[in-house]
Amino acid sequence: MTTLVPVTYKGGVYRHDEIMDLIDDLGGYIVQKHVMAQDVVLQSFVPRDDIDLIRTVAKPLAGDVIEAPLVGTEIAVVSPSLEIHHLPHTACDIAEYLRRSGAKTNMIGLARGFGKRIANLNDEERDVINEHDLAVYVLGNFEECIEHKFPALRRGIQVPIVVTGAPDRETLARIVDPPVEGYVGGVGRIMHRFKRPEELAKLDELVDEVSRALDARRDALARDPLSVFPPRLMAIVEEQIPEVTMLTHPTPVTAQMEGLRVKLPYDLYADDVRSLDVTGGVTVGDIADVLPSRMRNYILIRIKPFSETRILV
């Protein structure tokens, strides 16, 4: 079986459809396509053995194929509030940098996440964060505050968490109890754009930390694989529900590690999604839970593991 690896293709608009066709023909999937003026960025999964072929085809088009560890993941960047204290610099720079590595990031500004004693997380915020593959908590400068507020901010969160803050990594690891999946120290509340080399190095460290946390999850998934590979289901949804292509969202269907977020109203489309034919009479409803998302009125598809369905497509 060919292994699909996450890569980013960067190139010009000119003849980029050839690259898209090539990826499709090789059995790969494009999970996200961005056209920015003259440039095209494709976040995709391609067979490992064929990366060189894509490079060769892309060479005359001045295109480049880069490994992007976070393609096909949806990451929540959680900021204690949407006030000027926490935004835009730290949270936006982190979100943007994760996006460059292929992730789809959503920024979540908590309603009352600020303060040491008064920090809170409400049920909607908790549920929205739990719909992601991983949450990056962008916290502040004081060890004392992080120690006190973090238990409140993580209450009920089941997805892996990476914490950033001004104290160094060891201090963060010491004060966060029980431990989380990743720590990046030396970030904190920064009131300017990340531009110095040491600040950019921190962002690279964050990407490494996030990929490490997600790799652990991937390993667990490899032991009990999903009934269908999410990007494959994404292709099926896009092909069979034409309304998806009419949405103006940048990612009308968002691929996650264990499912999809379909940005169509749940009430109107949930049954259509459930009855979609995946292959040979197997429907989406057989291999996945189709749930209402807490994010607007979207549909959340959670793919069940093989051990539960005994189906692998």
Binding site: N141, F142, E143, A166, P167, T171, G188, R189, I190, M191
Partner: peptide, 16 residues
Amino acid sequence: PDPVGREAYERITGDV
């Protein structure tokens, strides 16, 4: 009293 926080606030103040 927190040396890390002190340094961070020095920079925040400068930036603001």
